[in-house]
Design a protein around this nucleic acid. Structure first.
Length: 278
DNA sequence: TCCAATGTTTCGCC
DNA sequence: GGGCGAAACATTGG
């Protein structure tokens, strides 16, 4: 789940602020007794972190505690309609509504860590700092564009979908190194990361995200240049989809052939023909 | 039916 | 201690 989706989650949770929590259960190992009778105070999101604050105790012993939920690749949340045959990591009730969290990492967050979040690198935050991001990118000349976008210390909340869409929109080959980009290209890359993240949010909210993908999981170039390339790129080796015509590699050094490819070429693995008739 | 995929953390090795 | 790769974790749509 990428940053913009968590903003939507935050908005879904907001109406329940100030209400009491009950019936807590789930596989998570964090202490659940803290929740029982606690007050839900706030939902926030930073990058791909979903942050929930509760207030526990009474009178002078009132105390805030925070949890951090990370949905990783497969995680999800539901309100009221649980997944069948799944045990949630965490589930609780607020105002007769049942909240479920599946397949996610849940931790308690020390108050100091909660306060330490740097909102200026969160793409969805009003505090997002474009100039600072440009500097961060330029400080990593040897890093490839596809990897820098996935760097959560620069673009918190940016995931593989946004990566692919942004690279296409600014017409950059995923494996271009930062040092081979013009200042304008770096600025465009940062600008579009922020811009597309917000566009992602708008489309996701009306359930129209996928239909607006230009490159992600597509087969052909939107500008009719033919088939797209689909391959793992960069140090991270996350899957990229790109058009070799729209996004040519223009770096100073030739893109090195990957070892695996060279080997494959020397000894092409011949698939045994599967006989059609028996 | 199979497998890649909206991702991060941890562990062990050099 | 840093860099690296592998493994762990856990799910489902295409």
């Amino acid at each position: 789940m990428e940053g913009p989706s968590l903003v939507i989650a935050r908005e879904e949770f907001a109406p329940f602020q100030g209400k009491k929590v009950s019936q807590v259960e789930g596989k998570t190992r964090i202490p659940k007794e803290n929740f029982e009778g606690a007050t839900f105070k706030e939902a926030r999101s930073w990058g791909k972190h979903f942050l929930l604050t509760f207030e526990t105790g009474r009178g002078k012993s009132k105390k805030d505690f925070h949890i951090r939920i990370h949905f990783l690749m497969f995680g999800s949340y539901r309100i009221d309609n649980p997944r069948e045959n799944r045990i949630p990591m965490l589930a609780y009730t607020i105002n007769e509504r049942r909240f479920y969290f599946y397949s996610c990492g849940i931790r308690t967050l020390e108050p100091a860590k909660f306060k330490a979040y740097d909102w200026s690198i969160d793409l969805m935050s009003p505090k997002w700092d474009h100039k600072q991001a440009v500097e961060h990118v330029k400080s990593k000349p040897e890093t490839m564009a596809c990897d820098i976008l996935m760097d959560q210390n620069i673009f918190a909340g940016l995931g593989n979908i946004i990566k692919n869409e942004v690279l296409y929109r600014v017409r950059l080959h995923p494996e271009m190194k930062i040092k081979d980009l013009s200042s304008k290209q770096v600025r465009d890359l940062v600008y579009e990361s922020h811009n597309y993240s917000h566009q992602f949010y708008e489309w996701k909210k009306i359930n129209q995200l996928k239909r607006h993908w230009l490159i992600m999981r597509k087969k052909d170039c939107p500008e009719k240049h033919g088939e797209l390339i689909k391959e793992p790129t960069g140090k991270l080796q996350r899957l990229s989809h790109y058009c070799p015509v729209c996004q040519p590699f223009t770096g100073s050094k030739k893109k090195p052939l990957k070892k695996s490819k060279v080997l494959k070429r020397k000894a092409p693995a011949k698939k045994p023909e599967r006989s059609i008739t028996h």
